[in-house]
Design a protein around this nucleic acid. Structure first.
Length: 344
DNA sequence: AATTTGTACAACCGCAGACTA
DNA sequence: GTAGTCTGCGGTTGTACAAAT
């Protein structure tokens, strides 16, 4: 059974021959496609209109880019997919010369495997072990037994508190591309964030290259926590993971240790959040200096609306009411993360 | 050298929404 | 309002080629 557009005629299926390509390309170039259902007849092809349309869009269009995807294109796909999910046509709009089919194939054959190798869920972009859903429990309390975080909201004081159940995290090891010039960055580069303290709106991490209990920190990192939800905090750390691991062959998974809880309390409705780095490894410092602060959308403790975003690409197409965005989604300029990945 | 397995990519299928008579 | 048609999308399958056995 064929398409309704081609039931009236005998149609050929399967791969296109060079002759067919030439006929179709010549016809579209000179006449335009008009109604696709009439194209095969007018162009002298025994194909259905749907097949002609697909062949033109995915293969014959003159503005198509050929060749493999660049690292930048790959990052764009991952970043946009994080927001939109499998909306290939929307993702492809951010990659001039690429088709939705091409992006979809690249995702399924390549990116998906990379993310899985890094211990990340290709659908949610979160850690496979921490992907349980975070639900608003009406009162604003959010619990996730497998999450790194437990968050609760005090409606009388409008304060959030967040327990950090897993105070240090080992990010995937990545080979350092800059060993010759960076003595601090030799061999594999397995960054470990170790939560050490917290204040009213800041949680501090030490930045280790080895087991935190057996090594001195290479640097300190403070994450502004004001107004942040567990999901956005978790996403921030995940983004470190995906960014840092993006260039690595090593597929080590996150290694989480359990220690006493660190607790932080934060007021609601803070506008901005940022990462402050001190004594960073060279790559981190360079990334920070080059890109300025890492802007992170602030979302409210009650997981309701999302507002302003700091973005490196056009979000006009984003449907903010979609489920993916409502569930504590986080949007930010990922380029600093990229820098972390490529310039360690 | 022959066969099997894996991978990348091209093409198809079914569905949903828009449009039109 | 409704049925028929067209278009576009995302999931799935098919095919060619490479790598492994």
């Amino acid at each position: 059974m064929g398409h309704h557009c081609c039931t009236k005629q005998k149609v050929k299926r399967g791969l296109w021959s060079p002759e067919e390509d030439e006929k179709l390309a010549r016809f579209i170039t000179t006449h335009g496609h008009g109604s696709w259902s009439s194209v095969p007849k007018l162009a002298g092809l025994q194909r259905c209109g749907k097949s002609c349309r697909l062949r033109w869009i995915n293969y014959l269009r003159p503005d198509l880019k050929r060749g493999s995807f660049s690292a930048q294109e790959e990052r764009t796909i991952i970043d946009v997919h994080r927001i939109l999910g499998n909306r290939w046509s929307q993702i492809a709009k951010h990659l001039p010369g690429r088709t939705d089919n091409e992006v979809k194939n690249f995702w399924n054959s390549c990116i998906k495997k990379k993310l899985l190798a890094q211990g990340l869920d290709p659908n949610t972009h979160n850690l496979l072990s921490t992907t349980s859903s975070l639900k608003n429990n009406n009162g604003g309390n959010v619990n996730s037994s497998s999450s790194m975080f437990h968050m609760s909201t005090d409606s009388s004081t409008s304060n959030c508190s967040m327990d950090l159940k897993i105070p240090f995290v080992t990010l995937p090891s990545v080979p350092c591309p800059d060993q010759a010039t960076n003595p601090i960055c030799t061999g594999l580069f397995p960054p470990i964030l170790h939560a050490t303290s917290s204040s009213s709106n800041l949680v501090s991490f030490e930045y280790h290259q080895q087991n935190p209990s057996a090594s001195s920190p290479h640097g300190l990192m403070d994450l502004a926590a004001a107004g942040r939800s567990p999901s956005s905090f978790s996403s921030l750390l995940n983004s470190f993971s995906s960014g840092l691991a993006g260039n690595g062959e090593e597929s080590s998974l996150w290694d989480c240790g359990l220690e006493a809880n660190a607790v932080l309390a934060a007021p609601r409705h803070e506008d901005t959040s940022q990462v402050q780095m001190q004594q960073q490894p060279p790559g981190l410092k360079q990334a920070n200096e080059k890109n300025g602060k890492l802007g992170v959308e602030s979302d409210n403790c009650d997981f309701m609306s999302t507002d302003a975003m700091d973005s490196s690409f056009d979000f006009d197409f984003v449907e903010r009411s979609s489920a993916g965005l409502a569930a504590g989604g986080m949007y930010y300029n990922l380029s600093p993360i990229d820098q972390l990945a490529w310039n360690c």
